[in-house]
């Protein structure tokens, strides 16, 4: 016994399905068949509408996830920018030169000494020497983790330049490990006055100060008219 199939307007309805699917494929997620007919074919039409609904929902979800990922990426990029900025700030930390005692300047160096920073540091120190007329300066490198040939070279140059301006430069804070490493590198720092700690350097500088004072005082007694001012 065969059942008869009841479908009206089959040609138009298939055309409509094709149109709707084409619209959906082209990105129109609002398009639906929405058949008003009730017959054996309307089930298929309704099923297609349901599929389009599911697809729309799926796409919406995906868009949401993608947007979330994008905003996360943006945030990470933003954070990375901040980190880079902070690193830059750290590198460009002004090198504070301060006059800690009569005639004594201290320059604590912290972090890595790249060429740019060393340049700034050297200029600061030399300018301060000129400004204050101090004749002893202490460069403390306790905070410098790695002294390679380039850093050593910069230190030597700074000391030489300070000397040209009439100031003795003492380097303090060379750790035992760094001292050994410098020796293995083969760099000769014997022309530089070095002290193990900042404290040692300070004591040395103050003794030096006292000696200078005594010499000055002595000069004043022996030839009191030497300084007309």
């Amino acid at each position: 016994m065969s059942e008869s199939i009841n479908i009206t307007n089959i040609k138009d309805r298939i055309d409509r399905i094709e149109d709707i699917l084409a619209s959906v494929a082209a990105g129109d997620m609002e398009a639906r068949i929405q058949t008003e007919t009730e017959d054996d074919f309307s089930g298929i039409e309704a099923a297609i509408d349901l599929l389009i609904n599911d697809l729309t929902e799926e796409l919406r979800q995906r868009e949401k996830v993608q947007k979330e990922l994008e905003s996360k990426l943006e945030k990470i990029q933003e954070q990375q920018k901040t980190i880079l900025q902070q690193q830059e700030d750290l590198l460009e930390l002004s090198s504070p030169v301060s006059k800690v005692w009569d005639n004594i300047l201290i320059l604590p160096v912290i972090g890595t000494l790249d060429s740019q920073r060393t340049q700034v540091m050297m200029e600061n120190l030399l300018q301060k020497i000129v400004e204050t007329g101090c004749t002893i300066s202490i460069l403390d490198i306790t905070g410098v983790p790695t002294v390679d040939t380039q850093v050593a070279n910069h230190l030597l140059k700074t000391v030489t330049a300070a000397r040209l301006l009439g100031a003795e430069c003492i380097i303090s804070g060379i750790s035992p490990a760094i001292a050994q490493t410098i020796v293995h590198l083969g760099i000769d720092l014997s022309t530089i006055r070095t002290k193990a700690t900042l404290q040692d350097a300070m004591i040395f500088a103050m003794k030096q100060n006292k000696r200078d004072d005594e010499i000055r005082a002595l000069k004043n007694i022996v030839i009191p008219n030497e300084h007309a001012d």
Partner: peptide, 27 residues
């Protein structure tokens, strides 16, 4: 690299040596 040296159980002198050596090569 300093951290890897530390992780490998090297002392401060060896850490400083390898770090300084690679610094030379990188430069």
């Amino acid at each position: 690299i300093r951290q890897f040296a530390k992780d490998a159980g090297m002392g401060i002198v060896d850490q400083t040596r390898i770090t300084t050596a690679v610094s030379e090569l990188f430069r």
